[in-house]
Simulated assay, not measured.
Amino acid sequence: MTEPLQLYYYPGVCSLAPHIALREAGASFEAVRVDLRPLKTETGDDFARINPKGYVPALRLPDGGVLTETAVLLQYVADTWPEAGLAPRHGGLERIRFDERLIFISTELHKGFAPFTIMPNAGEEAKRWAGQRLAARVELLAQDLGERPFFHGERFTVVDAYAFFALRTYHKLFAGELPPHLAAFLARVAERPAVVATFAAEGLKA
């Protein structure tokens, strides 16, 4: 007997992206909150035994295996529910370009938040350098989006779920204005029913 999918998350952090993607896909899953200090699930399980890496997101599969890393979870959701249209099919340059965007957000934005979020005792010089680097990456995202409603065109994809988390986090960290079309993108995504439902499930304010 297979078990249902379980998404291990903490409100508002990077696990927000696969949480949104699962709802966009219409997947049946259980969202399990993790308290990061100490590493315990809401039911009292030791999260380090579920994901020895010690961070969210993690996705327990029906066979009992566990997937980690935000970009991987997003690809898994897109490829497991292809009818939802959350990514191009594998087998061509379109998918390679799509994955390029996904990895850019993962490595150049998501991980760039560390001096402001999880890095202990980050110095002011390191923060200044990281902030300038993040601003340059956000400008590249702005150029990439252009006048399109979503990053891959007219249709919402898992790249948009990841970009939504990253741009929302950037805006919260630096309390600055985003370029108008990126701000419009955030507002557009925030109104999607799956995103509204995810925010309600995680207890977040829009």
Rank of each mutant, 00 (worst) to 15 (best):
S28Q: 14
Q6D: 07
A163R: 13
A206F: 01
E154T: 00
E147K: 14
R148Y: 04
T43E: 15
P57K: 02
Y170R: 06
L7S: 03
G153R: 02
A78N: 01
A71G: 03
T43C: 11
A163I: 09
P4A: 13
I103S: 03
G65F: 09
L16F: 11
A130K: 14
A114Y: 14
D35R: 12
A114K: 15
R97Y: 04
I50M: 07
F47A: 06
L39C: 11
L73W: 07
E154Q: 08
L36A: 11
F174H: 13
E139L: 08
V34R: 03
E24R: 08
F98D: 02
L22C: 03
Y10P: 00
Y9P: 00
E191S: 12
A183G: 15
S28R: 13
F116R: 11
L22G: 05
H152Y: 04
N51F: 07
Y170P: 07
G176T: 14
P82W: 07
P38F: 04
L93A: 14
K205T: 14
L74Y: 08
A136G: 15
F185W: 12
V72Y: 12
L86W: 00
T70G: 10
P62R: 00
Y162G: 10
L93T: 09
F116D: 14
Q75A: 04
R188G: 01
L61C: 03
R101C: 05
T157C: 01
L39T: 10
H19W: 04
V72H: 11
A21F: 03
R60W: 10
Y162R: 11
L61R: 09
L204Q: 02
K172F: 14
P82C: 05
F185E: 10
L140E: 13
G91N: 05
Y170H: 14
H110M: 05
G153Y: 00
V158K: 13
F185M: 12
T80I: 00
V34G: 06
A142I: 04
E125N: 14
L74H: 08
A27K: 07
F47W: 05
L61H: 04
L186K: 10
T169I: 05
S106V: 03
D35C: 06
L102E: 00
I20Q: 06
G44N: 08
L59C: 00
T80R: 12
P4N: 11
R33V: 00
P57C: 06
P149F: 09
